[in-house]
Simulated scan of single mutants.
Amino acid sequence: MNKNYGSQRIVVGAHYGLRDWLSQRVTAVLMALFTIVLLAQLIFGAELGYVRWAGIFSSQWMKLLTLVTVLSLAWHAWVGMRDIWMDYIHHVGLKLVLQVATIVWLVACAGWAIQVLWRL
């Protein structure tokens, strides 16, 4: 039975919306958890100085939580920036350049943060 109403086009990429929405929410919750833990360490700890700051990040669980937060932040930023580039940049070549530049920038920032974290 043929229907002669509605759209006959095939929608591609629509299933990515839920995954992106969910990843934004999960990474936001992880970043909020990290913020709460860090604020608790700062508020209930001793006087803030280099020794105290280095002490906060010296334990393995805090290094792991910080690593997860840095990776979550990078993924969160990537999903947001990718959506902005896809929605507002219409020239394919410029869109590709901006997406690659964003990936390079986020990987470099995450790598630098990890290097700083594990140097403590």
Rank of each mutant, 00 (worst) to 15 (best):
R9D: 05
T66K: 07
N2P: 11
L73N: 06
L106V: 01
Y50F: 10
G111P: 03
V107H: 08
R52E: 11
Q60P: 01
R9K: 15
G93S: 15
Q8C: 08
A77R: 10
A40C: 11
L38F: 15
V104E: 07
A40G: 08
L67H: 05
G55S: 11
H90Q: 10
G13R: 14
W75Y: 15
V116Y: 09
G17M: 09
R52L: 03
F34P: 02
L117M: 06
H90G: 09
V92G: 01
W85P: 00
W78M: 02
W112L: 09
Y16A: 12
V68Q: 01
D83G: 13
A77C: 13
F44Q: 01
W53I: 08
W53G: 02
V51D: 15
A46C: 03
W75D: 05
Y88F: 14
L73C: 02
Y50E: 15
S23T: 13
M81Y: 06
Q115N: 05
T102H: 12
H90I: 12
L106M: 02
A101G: 13
G45W: 10
L71V: 02
I89R: 04
A101R: 10
G6Q: 08
W53H: 03
R82F: 13
G17H: 13
V51M: 09
T69R: 06
A113M: 03
E47A: 03
G111V: 06
T35W: 13
V12G: 03
I10M: 04
L96H: 03
I43C: 06
A14C: 08
A108P: 05
R82Y: 13
W105F: 06
V68M: 08
R82G: 06
L22K: 12
S59T: 02
M1D: 14
L117Q: 05
L18T: 15
Q115Y: 14
L18P: 00
W78E: 00
Q115P: 00
F57D: 00
W112G: 02
L48A: 04
W75Q: 12
L96S: 04
F34A: 08
L71N: 03
W112D: 10
Q24N: 13
W53F: 11
M62S: 08
W21N: 15
V12M: 11
L94N: 01
K63I: 03
W78I: 02
L30H: 04
Q115E: 10
L30E: 01
I103S: 08
L94D: 05
W105L: 01
V29R: 07
L67Q: 08
A113Q: 05
I84H: 01
S7N: 15
A54C: 03
H15K: 06
W75R: 15
I114Q: 00
A110Q: 02
L96P: 00
S58P: 03
L67R: 07
L96G: 09
A77Q: 07
G80A: 11
V107S: 10
V11K: 14
A77N: 14
G55F: 04
G49E: 09
S23V: 04
A113G: 08
G13C: 10
T102I: 00
G17D: 11
S7W: 08
L65P: 00
W21Y: 15
L22M: 14
I56V: 11
I89S: 00
E47K: 06
G80T: 10
S7G: 11
G13T: 11
G49Y: 04
Y88D: 08
L73M: 11
L39V: 10
L120T: 08
R119G: 11
I43P: 04
L22V: 15
W21I: 14
L18K: 14
G111K: 06
